[in-house]
């Protein structure tokens, strides 16, 4: 099912109807474990990031998604778990006992590629929000796993939050150099956000408001 969905629907949609323009494709990891962090503007973000990798890696790519959002109804939950293959993340951290990142750590230990949106939500379209610090904890707990920052532009125009009509635009993806854990959280987060900013500056985008 997951294969069919991606091979027949998602890839043609993203490659023919939209069109991906990937810069520095060689910086992508060939296999897991790895963490992909990207800015979040649209429901299509995770699909676009999954399409960066060959189909044979599909089953080992896991987007991290908000449990409260995707568990709202049984159909959405089924879709998120079985088709998207998400790792549900409890944004409210209701259970204090459990490490909220333990599912992600487990996935990484199975050499999987984890996709994470540290902005935490799609936010207002085509603007880069602040990154939440969860990624720093994750990098600290997995110092040997590369974190690859990816800046995406265009999907917020194609399908922004609160819209159901898809309008085709070309999509730009800028892949950054892999980052590893440094001594402390603050300098790690600073490195990450400055990498994202410089990736965003590589492109010149027409205004959209």
């Amino acid at each position: 099912m997951r294969f069919l969905f991606f091979a027949i629907f998602v890839r043609p949609l993203l490659i023919i109807i939209l069109g991906l323009h990937v810069r520095h494709k060689s910086r992508l990891p060939k296999k897991g474990p790895a963490i992909i962090v990207a800015n979040h503007n649209s429901h299509l973000d995770a699909l676009a990031l999954i399409c960066l990798f060959p189909l044979r890696l599909l089953l080992s790519i896991k987007p991290v998604a908000a449990q409260d959002y995707f568990y709202r109804n049984p159909l959405l939950k089924w879709f998120a778990l079985n088709i998207m293959g998400i790792i549900p993340l409890d944004r409210k951290m209701r259970s204090k006992k459990k490490n909220p990142l333990s599912d992600i750590n487990e996935s990484l230990s199975k050499n999987e590629i984890v996709i994470l949106f540290p902005e935490g939500s799609r936010g207002s379209p085509e603007s880069l929000g602040d990154f939440k610090a969860g990624i720093a904890h994750l990098a600290k707990q997995n110092p040997e796993v590369p974190v690859i920052p990816v800046f995406m532009h265009g999907l917020g125009k194609v399908l922004p939050k609160g819209e159901a009509l898809l309008v085709p635009f070309f999509i730009d993806l800028f892949i950054g150099e892999p980052l590893f854990w440094v001594s402390d959280k603050i300098s790690y987060m600073e490195t990450l956000s400055s990498t994202m900013t410089s990736l965003a500056e590589e492109g010149s985008f027409p205004s959209w408001d």
């Binding site: 939209l18 069109g19 009509l165 635009f169 070309f170 027409p206």
Partner: peptide
């Protein structure tokens, strides 16, 4: 599509 991606557009123009 290339043209619409190049030029500045407004969010209100999507439709």
């Amino acid at each position: 599509k290339e043209f619409f991606s190049l030029i500045p557009t407004r969010r209100a123009d999507r439709r």
